[in-house]
């Protein structure tokens, strides 16, 4: 099977990411990888919950004094929207609309960058308050959990950007369809993790 064969919307398969053996393997392997990632984040969440508000005696910082929901709410909305735009992109892939897919992925990247900018602003703000990485067990656990997520966002953005640039002139093929698909899966995963961070760290921190 020629992986670089040109397809038309009529000949383009329903699940282009899973036509080739490589595609099938990638699809399954990536899901399994995300399973492992879930355990990884679960470990981080468990640690965070164990160390929440724990610090040297007389520590002034706590989730209540620190977190401000409006900013985090905006971040959440941005990331959720970016997940939606990546769904549009995959929809266009299915319909063999390459330009549409690239456009929506571009929007996804922009939204991701906005999220990242806000997160950097937020971290910077905490550090200025004196809540830096080494301040307490709580600060270490917080920055590690949220920072690991942030790192995933960076990786996702670089990945999607590389795909957009690399394939701009080549269009669809059964070779790059699985790559696009797994990248979008990754982006959804990042989004789901953020929903948990928003709930467990911020909402339960401020309210609970």
């Amino acid at each position: 099977m020629d992986l670089n064969k040109k397809y038309t919307p009529q000949t383009w398969p329903d699940h282009p990411e899973q036509v080739t053996m490589e595609g099938k393997n990638k699809f399954l392997g990536f899901w399994l990888f995300l399973g492992g990632e879930t355990v990884l984040f679960a470990s981080l969440f468990a640690t965070y919950l164990a160390l929440k508000n724990k610090g040297p005696s007389g520590m002034e910082f706590s989730t209540q004094s620190l977190f401000e929901l409006p900013l985090v709410f905006v971040m959440t909305m941005i990331l959720l929207t970016s997940s939606l735009t990546s769904v549009y992109a995959m929809y266009h892939m299915k319909n063999h609309n390459f330009k549409g897919m690239q456009l929506w992925l571009g929007i996804t990247v922009v939204l991701g960058l906005a999220f990242l900018a806000l997160e950097i602003y937020e971290f910077n703000h905490y550090v200025h308050l004196g809540f830096n990485y080494s301040q307490s067990a709580f600060s270490s656990a917080f920055f590690t959990l949220v920072g690991t997520h942030g790192l995933h966002v960076v990786v996702g953005l670089v990945w999607i950007t590389l795909l957009i640039v690399r394939n701009a002139k080549r269009g669809f093929s059964l070779y790059n369809a699985p790559k696009y698909y797994t990248a979008s899966l990754y982006w959804h995963f990042i989004d789901v993790v953020w929903v948990f961070i928003f709930t467990v760290v911020y909402l339960m921190g401020v309210v609970g």
């Binding site: 164990a50 160390l51 724990k54 040297p56 990485y133 307490s136 067990a137 270490s140």
Partner: peptide
């Protein structure tokens, strides 16, 4: 500079 296991800094 982490404090996950340093009990004097709240670690465990």
């Amino acid at each position: 500079g982490g404090n996950f296991f340093d009990h004097t800094m709240g670690g465990n």
